[in-house]
Design a protein around this nucleic acid. Structure first.
Length: 609
RNA sequence: GGUCCCGUAGCUCAGCUGGAUAGAGCAGCGGACUUCUAAUCCGCAGGUCGCAGGUUCGAAUCCUGCCGGGAUCGCCA
């Protein structure tokens, strides 16, 4: 465990055939039509041949009364063409009217071109969902590129608490998302096993060892970890060493106890992560950077020195309040300012050991040397001030070739029915991640942790998150999926041959789906590929959670219409073809819900309770 | 004092990296529903997007400066 392992080669990962029909991203399709229309105008000399089209967007308008697809092309092109936007709009519109997937083209406002798609277009979305299966909505942006996602990286000094939980879930969902988007993802955990904290851990564990040996230890001295979780470690030390450690000097026992305790803590942490269905490909030990006669930190500093990015100098004291033990001294500094940081950064402490930053640089150098050009680090909010220097380090070490994105997860406020849960580190009464998962389950924990933007604080209510009500988004989304399956269970009585949700719907007559609410649901489903692409590009898995909530709401709404209007119910005992068409829609909804939930790492249950 | 994040309806928050009249859910008000397929449903009201400038056809979104809240600030990790 204390040595770096190579990233696992993903032998049985599906190889996506990129040459096959592109997934059903209808906005791409219509973007192509708009660009073709612009090309046409260029050929006619209406637009200069070199007119840039990067700013042209083809998107669903926010307001559905503006149609299904809108483009700003005319307004963007007005300046280079030296023509009023509405004039250009009418020329582009004339071209678009020729496309048979488009029902109407209208020019609105300052020059928007709004399109309503042909009724015959929408059923293709449903067919695409069934045809493409797990590939539906897959963004084609990864193209097999390697990306390294580092998350959790909790210190191996105790069990994980709720604060770690959010970053863990976020990182895991982000890794899932990037994998879904076609990246070759390596999930990584950096073990901070080299600093003073692990020596404290060792002394704390040694105390528990003496306790296990029958000695009176009294109060745990301040400065050591008081938690009961070290008692089993003391017992285990006794089992392994007997009384041998008692006669050793601290210098002798400390390395043994330290390694033993770190192993024990990592075992605990891995168990905690497993309870949340989180796994890592690589556990990278900080200690390994300077072990085995090779000092990779020194190598890193030498490498930067050769690039003239290291110097001996003094730093100005921080403005505002000055630390008590401030001492002006000459030290080894990295020219982080050249790469956008606010200050140059120290690499060697006054006692001669490396700073945490120096080791972290060496770690990221190792990632770069392993071939990663894209790296993502997921950190807690208290590390925000560290971002610039780490990005500077990656820029310097890679010759500005590699990119690091740092995602910050804000604090979690743990509540119980609206009341804050008291947590005191001193009293050792902090709530562990395991406590939370044991109480509410991994699915609820994961979904709630993702139901908020990562850089906004999050309220996590242990009571509300398990409520079976509309107010609980976890339940609401899972219920939608379960309800879709329930429809198939119920339809068995009237149409047993239609009761399989996995059946082939390719011959369903989807032109029967002409209620506005049905069409609304299809449009929600059609938005999925675009949503996933934006979530993957922005590294924001929370967008998926919000989308799923929205989709669930649309689906429940359609279901509810059947209460008052029996002719809108999915199951029509007297009309098998209509039932089949509606079941195709229900099954497609279930598939998209399941697809999104899978990326979030939440189980798509088929039945509640 | 420097840096970063946040500021959107009474509350909790979205807002698709610059689009049109800024959206949900709670809470509030007004109705419907009494078992229909499974954990109610529909409607109404609610806003100077912290403030002030700037960039442009167009800004909640980008830039600058303030105001307010949080995090952090050579050797902790």
């Amino acid at each position: 465990m204390h040595s770096a392992m190579l990233p696992r080669k993903s032998a049985n990962r599906t190889n996506w055939n990129l040459a096959k029909a592109t997934p059903m991203n209808l906005f791409r399709h219509f973007e192509a039509l708009v660009l073709a229309a612009i090309d046409h105008l260029k050929n006619d000399g209406v637009l200069p041949a070199e007119t840039p089209v990067e700013k042209v967007t083809v998107e669903p308008p926010r307001d559905p009364t503006h149609g299904d697809i809108a483009t700003n092309a005319a307004m963007v092109l007005a300046k280079p063409a030296k023509k009023p936007p509405r004039e250009i709009a009418s020329l582009i519109a004339a071209q678009l009217k020729k496309a048979h997937d488009i029902k109407t083209v209208e020019i609105a406002g300052p020059g928007f071109i709004n399109m309503v798609l042909a009724d015959s277009f929408w059923p293709q979305v449903i067919h695409a969902i069934h045809r493409e299966g797990d590939d539906f909505g897959r963004p084609q942006i990864g193209q097999g590129q390697p990306v390294n996602v580092e998350y959790v990286s909790a210190n191996p000094t105790g069990p994980m608490h709720v604060g770690h939980c959010r970053g863990a879930v976020f990182g895991d969902a982000l890794a899932n998302l990037l994998e879904f988007a076609g990246y070759e993802v390596t999930r990584e955990y950096y073990i901070n096993d080299a600093g003073a904290q692990v020596d404290v851990l060792a002394r704390s564990a040694y105390l528990r060892y003496r306790e296990a040996m029958g000695q009176e230890i009294g109060e745990i001295p301040s400065g050591l970890y008081p938690g009961d979780y070290l008692k089993p470690v003391g017992e285990a030390l006794k089992a392994k060493y007997g009384d041998v450690l008692l006669d050793m000097t601290e210098q002798e026992w400390l390395p043994r106890v330290r390694d033993f305790a770190i192993d024990a803590m990592m075992t605990t942490i891995k168990g905690d992560l497993a309870a949340l269905n989180i796994r890592h490909d690589v556990f990278f030990s900080e200690r390994s950077l300077t072990a085995g006669g090779v000092d990779q930190v020194a190598q890193t500093i030498d490498e930067l020195r050769a690039k003239h990015l290291i110097y001996e100098g003094r730093l100005p004291p921080p403005k505002g309040k000055r630390p008590d033990d401030w001492e002006d001294r000459k030290q080894t500094l990295f020219r982080a300012e050249e790469f956008g940081d606010d200050s140059d950064r120290a690499l060697i402490k006054s006692d001669g050991s490396y700073t945490y930053f120096a080791a972290d640089m060496a770690y990221h150098r190792d990632k770069i040397r392993r071939g990663f050009k894209e790296m993502i680090d997921v950190w807690g909010a208290d590390h925000g001030g560290y971002i610039k220097r780490m990005k500077a380090a990656v820029a310097a070490l890679s010759g500005r070739k590699a990119n690091l994105d740092v995602k910050i997860c804000q604090l979690v406020n743990l509540l119980r029915d609206g009341e804050p849960v008291k947590m005191s580190k001193r009293a050792g009464s902090f709530v562990t991640l395991r406590d939370v998962v044991d109480e509410v389950g991994a699915d609820a924990t994961r979904f709630m942790m993702l139901f908020r933007k990562n850089d906004a604080p999050l309220d996590f209510d242990l009571v509300k998150v398990v409520e079976q009500s509309r107010d609980n988004p976890v339940f609401y989304v899972q219920y939608a999926h379960a309800r879709a399956h329930s429809v198939f269970r119920k339809v068995r009585d009237d149409h047993p041959e239609l009761a399989d949700i996995e059946q082939d719907f390719s011959d369903a007559d989807l032109s029967r789906l002409n209620d506005a609410a049905e069409l609304g649901l299809i449009k929600s489903l059609a938005a999925y590929p675009r949503l996933m692409e934006s979530a993957a590009k922005s590294h924001e898995p929370h967008r998926i959670a919000f989308y799923l909530h929205d989709l669930a709401s649309t689906f429940h709404g359609l279901w509810n219409r059947g209460i008052d209007l029996p002719h809108l119910r999915f199951n029509q005992p007297e009309d098998k073809e209509l039932t089949k068409a509606r079941l195709a829609l229900v099954a497609a909804t279930a598939k998209v819900l399941a697809s999104g939930l899978k990326v979030l790492g939440v189980t798509a249950v088929r039945e509640l309770r």
